[in-house]
Design a binder for these strands. Structure first.
Length: 418
RNA sequence: GUGGGUAUAGCUCAGCUGGUUAGAGCGCCAGAUUGUGGCUCUGGAGGUCAUGGGUUCGAAUCCCAUUAUCCACCCCA
C-alpha cells in the first residue's frame, strides 16, 4: 500500500520527465506566438461549477468526478476538465472588462474516476486553450490551426482532423425532432445504451461505436442536415479558413462530442496506433456556457489535448526527444587531500553555468571514472597530488580518451567557454 | 460500471505433468598490485515466488478469495 501509487496515477521520473518538459516547452512557445496567455486555476472547484458547466447528464458528471466533502462541509470536486474553471475565472476576475477576445491557455492535471487503460488515467494532464469573447469563424480556424501547429512542432505525423457543426440553440431542437422521428420506428434494434440515449440525448446515437447501431443510423438526419442558414454559413466560413491555411480536414457528420456545452464547430484529432483511446485532442465552440455559468451572453471556443496520449503517440511514432542531462565535466579526486579543492572547483564551474558533478560516495579513482562514464560526462577533471601542487587539473575527454594537464582557470576555455 | 489476461530479484523473463538450499540475462556494488571509465574476467548484495485462505506427506506450481496491473467495452484527453 505504502509503496503503490493510487490506481490510474503515474510517477513521471527522470528519464521520462524530460519528454514532458520538451512537450511543455513546445506548447508554451506556440502559445506565445499565437498570443495566448497562461491562466492557472485551482485544482479543485465547487462541485456545482462542473455540474452546471459540463452538464448534469454527461458521463463526466454522472460517474467520473472525484467529489468530496471538505472540513467545512462544502462539496468540492477535483477538476475533470479545464473549460468550466477558466470560464469561472473569466467571470470572477472580470476579464470581460479588458480588451476582447481574451485568449488563454492552461497546462495541468485533470481527474476522472474511470477504469484505467492504454492512454487513459485517473489523473491525466491536459493542455488547453480557451478564447472568450470572439464570435467570428476566423477564431475557430485559429484555434484549430494552433492545435495542428503544436502536433507538427512535436513531430507527429498521420493525424486526422475531424470537424463538424453542431448548430445553435435554434437548429438543435429541429435536429432532435427529426432524429427521434427517424429512430423511433426501429428503436428496439439499437443497443441498450442507445435506447437510453433516445430520450436524453438522441444526438449521441450518431456517435455510437457499436457496428449494428452505426448501420441502423446510417441514413439518419445529421446535425448538418438541420443547420439554419446562419449556422451553415458559419461552418462554411470555418472550412474556408482552414483551406486557406492549408489544413486538411474531414467533415465527420457523426462527430458529436460528449460535453453538453458545445455549439457550432466541433472538432477532434485522431491518432492511429495508441490503442482504443485514439483521440489526442478535441474541442469546439461553446456559445452558451458563459451565460450558463452566470455571465452575460459571451461566445467561447476551446480546445484541449491529453499530454499522456501525445507522448504515447510520439513514442509510438519514434519521435526523437532531446537527449538526457549529461555533465559537461565530472571532477575526480585521486587523493584525499584533493577533496576540498575539488569541491571548490566544482562550485566555480557551476557558477559559470557548467553542468558539473562529483562523487559523494568515497569511491576509488577507478570507480569515480566508471561513475563519470555512466553519467555520460563529456570531460573528467582529475585532481591528484601533482595537480594540487601545480594548480592544474588532468582533463580527460571521455569520448576520445585523450588527456592533458592544464591550469585550473583554463578549464572553461577547454569546455568551450560560456 | 462490465468483460478478459497477468502477478517469480531493481528490469525482462525461465522454473517441464506439485518434490529438497528458486535460476538466467541485464542493472547495481566491489575487485583484477603503481593515478584512469567504456570491452573482458571474478566476486557480492538483492526474492515473505502479490496478499490471505484451502487441497496435499510436500505448493512458485493445483483450487478459492482479495488486491494490484494491463487490455477491451463504455466514455473521453
Amino acid at each position: 500500500m505504502l509503496t503503490n501509487r493510487p490506481r490510474g496515477t503515474n510517477d513521471i521520473i527522470p528519464g521520462e520527465v524530460e519528454k514532458w518538459q520538451f512537450v511543455e516547452d513546445v506548447i508554451r512557445d506556440v502559445c506565445r506566438t499565437y498570443g495566448y496567455r497562461e491562466i492557472r486555476t485551482p485544482i479543485f472547484e465547487h462541485t456545482e461549477l462542473f455540474k452546471r458547466g459540463v452538464g448534469e447528464t454527461t458521463d463526466i458528471v454522472e460517474k467520473e468526478m472525484y467529489t468530496f466533502i471538505d472540513r467545512g462541509e462544502r462539496s468540492v470536486t477535483l477538476r475533470p476538465e479545464g473549460t468550466a474553471a477558466v470560464v469561472r475565472a473569466y467571470l470572477e476576475n472580470k476579464l470581460y472588462t479588458g480588451p476582447q477576445p481574451v485568449k488563454l491557455y492552461y497546462i495541468g492535471p485533470m481527474f476522472r474516476y474511470d477504469r484505467p487503460q492504454a492512454g487513459r488515467y485517473r489523473q491525466f494532464h491536459q493542455f488547453g486553450v480557451e478564447v472568450l469573447g470572439a464570435h467570428s469563424p476566423g477564431i475557430d480556424a485559429e484555434v484549430i490551426a494552433m492545435a495542428m501547429e503544436v502536433y507538427k512542432r512535436l513531430g507527429l505525423r498521420g493525424l486526422e482532423l475531424h470537424i463538424n457543426s453542431l448548430g445553435c440553440p435554434e437548429c438543435r431542437p429541429k435536429l432532435r425532432e427529426r432524429l427521434k422521428e427517424f429512430l423511433h420506428t426501429r428503436l428496439d434494434q439499437f443497443c441498450p445504451t442507445c435506447q437510453d440515449r433516445f430520450e436524453r440525448n438522441p444526438m449521441r446515437i450518431l456517435d455510437c461505436k457499436n457496428e449494428k447501431c452505426r448501420a441502423l443510423a446510417a441514413g439518419a438526419p445529421t446535425t448538418l442536415d438541420c443547420l439554419c442558414d446562419e449556422c451553415s454559413a458559419f461552418f462554411e466560413a470555418v472550412k474556408e479558413h482552414l483551406e486557406d491555411l492549408g489544413i486538411e480536414y474531414v467533415v465527420d457528420k457523426k462527430l458529436v462530442r460528449g460535453l453538453d456545452y458545445y455549439t457550432h464547430t466541433a472538432f477532434e484529432i485522431m491518432a492511429p496506433g495508441i490503442g482504443a483511446q485514439s483521440s489526442v485532442g478535441g474541442g469546439g465552440r461553446y456559445n452558451g456556457l458563459v451565460e450558463q455559468c452566470g455571465g452575460k451572453d459571451t461566445p467561447g471556443i476551446g480546445y484541449a489535448l491529453g499530454l499522456e496520449r501525445i507522448i504515447l503517440t510520439m513514442e509510438q511514432q519514434g519521435v526523437k526527444f532531446p537527449p538526457a542531462w549529461r555533465p559537461d565535466i565530472f571532477v575526480v579526486t585521486a587523493c584525499a587531500e584533493a577533496e576540498r579543492t575539488a569541491f571548490k572547483l566544482l562550485s566555480k564551474l557551476r557558477e559559470k553555468g557548467y553542468k558539473a558533478d562529483k562523487d559523494y560516495n568515497g569511491r576509488s579513482l577507478k570507480a569515480q571514472m566508471k561513475y563519470a562514464g555512466k553519467l555520460n560526462a563529456r570531460y573528467t577533471a582529475i585532481l591528484g597530488e601533482n595537480e594540487l601542487k601545480n594548480g592544474t587539473a588532468m582533463m580527460k575527454d571521455m569520448n576520445t580518451g585523450e588527456q592533458q594537464e592544464i591550469p585550473v582557470d583554463k578549464i572553461p576555455e577547454l569546455l568551450g567557454g560560456k
